[in-house]
Amino acid sequence: MKFIFVPFVNGLIACAVFAAQAIMPASEASAAEQRQADPVRREGVNLKLEFLQRTGSISSAIYDDSMGVITFRALINGQVVWAVIDTGAEATFVDVKFSKEIGLDVEALSGSIRGLAGEMTRSKITGIELEIPGQFVVREAVFNGTDLSGLSRALNKKTAIIIGRDILNVISFYVDASAKRVVFLPSKSMKFQDTQIVRLPMIDGLLTGTINGVAASMAIDLGASGVLNIRRGVWDRYIPSGTTIDEVTSTDLGGETYTSVFTQGVTLGIGSISSLPAAKQVPDLDANFDAYIGYGFFQGRRTLFDYAAEEILILKD
């Protein structure tokens, strides 16, 4: 299927899903002033991002989703690493051990990061240059640091970076889950005719739809495998009492043992798309929505994610 590329000027495994703010870079502007000046940016984000795509020639990255999430090659300060796209992560995270090995400045911070993957330490890492070859580069970046060794073991790849919403909120990215390719572009750079797409309903960055016929707000979490993850606090709202459930004991990336609750054949409706996935119960990390839609929902599809324009478009076959 053809699409129009608009010319521009350069400028899981429930693996990550960190509920954390981005590290605050030095700035004289308050967070409120930053949001007012540029509502697309997340609080505390000040990225020096340059697109490398050229008009008439679109570069893409081949990715692997054999473990249920998108992993692909990237460069950090010239070193080839594995990266994960995680729309459930509020910020980008870089592995602390790797950062020290290549001589980056790592500052340990108090407190920890709590997400679906468990509890992990946090640091601030400065002097990072992140490049997706042929697509974009972020220079002189300050990102969060944490221990990603558990993620590396889960994915069977030495993973050095989780690309989160501080970056993904200010660009668009096109995922062809059939060809296993991802393309990063400026927001609104790809245009489609209405007859070519299914537009997923989105309000304030969240999908709206139904779970078993009951209205639900849902965050997209490409850092989680599977299709549907429902918060524990609202589980009974969507899953009737007496429903058959399965329980599995697992270990999160922080080393803690937990019990996962599943049920089969839940009716999920988002826009004109209806499916019958299994549903997993997950912790109450964010009360602003009811469920997470994982990468499994998008497997086999071609999807444009453009959070800046509040558009999620699925291309028809």
Results as ranks from 00 to 15, higher is better:
M67H: 13
A61M: 09
K48S: 13
V45D: 12
V84Y: 07
L52G: 03
G88L: 05
F93H: 07
F51V: 02
V81C: 13
T87H: 02
T87P: 05
L52Q: 14
T55Y: 11
V94W: 06
A91W: 01
L47P: 11
K100D: 14
E43D: 14
I70D: 02
T55L: 01
E90V: 00
F51L: 10
S66G: 13
A89M: 12
R73P: 07
K100A: 06
S59I: 00
V69A: 07
A74W: 01
R54E: 14
N46M: 04
S99Q: 06
R73M: 03
N77T: 05
A91R: 05
A74M: 08
F51K: 02
A61R: 09
R54V: 13
D64C: 14
N46Y: 02
Q79E: 15
A91Y: 00
S57A: 06
K97N: 08
F72A: 01
Q79D: 06
D64V: 07
E90L: 11
T87S: 12
V96A: 13
I70E: 02
L52M: 10
T92F: 04
W82R: 05
V94A: 08
A91S: 15
K97V: 11
E90K: 13
S59H: 10
V69F: 07
S60F: 15
L52F: 07
S59D: 14
S66I: 01
D95A: 09
I85H: 04
L47V: 05
L49N: 06
A83S: 15
F51C: 02
R54I: 07
D65A: 03
T92K: 06
T55S: 14
L47W: 03
T71K: 03
A83G: 07
N77K: 01
A83D: 08
I85K: 05
T87V: 00
L49K: 06
T92G: 06
E43P: 09
F98Y: 06
L52S: 08
V84M: 13
L47S: 02
G56M: 12
F72D: 11
D65P: 01
L49E: 10
I76V: 15
V80D: 15
S99E: 08
S57L: 11
G88D: 06
K97P: 00
Q53R: 05
E90I: 01
A74Q: 01
T55R: 11
V94C: 10
I58D: 07
D64K: 11
Y63E: 03
V69I: 13
V80C: 09
K100V: 02
S59M: 08
S99C: 11
D95C: 08
F72W: 10
A91C: 15
F93D: 11
K100R: 15
V80L: 12
N46P: 00
V84I: 15
G88Y: 02
T71E: 02
F93A: 04
L49I: 15
F93E: 09
V45M: 08
L47Y: 02
Q53V: 02
S57H: 09
L47K: 01
V80M: 13
R73V: 13
F51A: 04
R73N: 14
N77Q: 12
I70N: 00
A91P: 01
S57P: 00
F93I: 07
L75C: 02
A61D: 06
K48N: 15
T55Q: 14
E90N: 15
S66D: 14
K48V: 12
T92P: 04
A83H: 10
A91H: 03
S60M: 04
Q79C: 03
G68T: 06
